[in-house]
Amino acid sequence: MIEVSNISKTFYAPHEINALVNVSNKIKKGEVVVVIGPSGSGKSTFLRCLNRLETADSGKIYIHGVDILSPKTNINKIRAELGMVFQSFNLFPHKTALQNLVLAQTVVRKHSKKKALEKAMALLKKVGIEDKAGVYPDNLSGGQQQRVAIARALAMEPKAMLFDEPTSALDPEMIGEVLEVMRTLAKEGMTMVVVTHEMGFAKEVADRVIFMDNGAIIEEADPEHFFTNPVHQRTKLFLDQIL
């Protein structure tokens, strides 16, 4: 479903950083992949390259067999198929929770207002905040905002979901409600790539854990092996530090 081969990405501002160095990976349909690593390891850049929010300097990325780095590809079409959830939610503050879910459906998918509203309501119900439909993001808690953001991405009926540290900006008591929604999604068979520091979630939900450091994939394994029996020294060090 997602195929990455040999991508590299260098940032030049504020100073030169090799964010990704020859990264390759294959993510199958229905798989839940959790990407962990110290900050600055390139895991967010890796995720953002998958829907071309960052453009990889070299290498190939295929989504459903479509080469997304080719200039001939309509990237908007690909992005609509890949739901993205951000660390800072990025809800549209000038729209209510419900309108946040409706906007892209009507603008991008060209759905009728009625159909979009029905879908939006159903999704808000699914993430457990249908009673906040008419509320503006500023008046929602962080956990509620992130759930609206997940629902907003789901409204596009994506083939896969990308999560960029979805719980890192949340107060501890709100992390649970967001992870719960993600757990449900995983159970329903959604293909997910999750960048996170939530090791509990990784252990429980992930099919595969990827450890990145200095722009490269150091180690990948199923969670059981990964957490109990890491092979690389750097992985061990990292796990020792956070667990």
Partner: peptide, 17 residues
């Protein structure tokens, strides 16, 4: 904030949308 356009674009909106 840049996150606003990133959120919009990642939903598949074009630049002008």
């Amino acid at each position: 904030h840049r996150g606003q356009s990133e959120a919009a674009r990642s939903l598949g909106m074009t630049y002008s949308q």
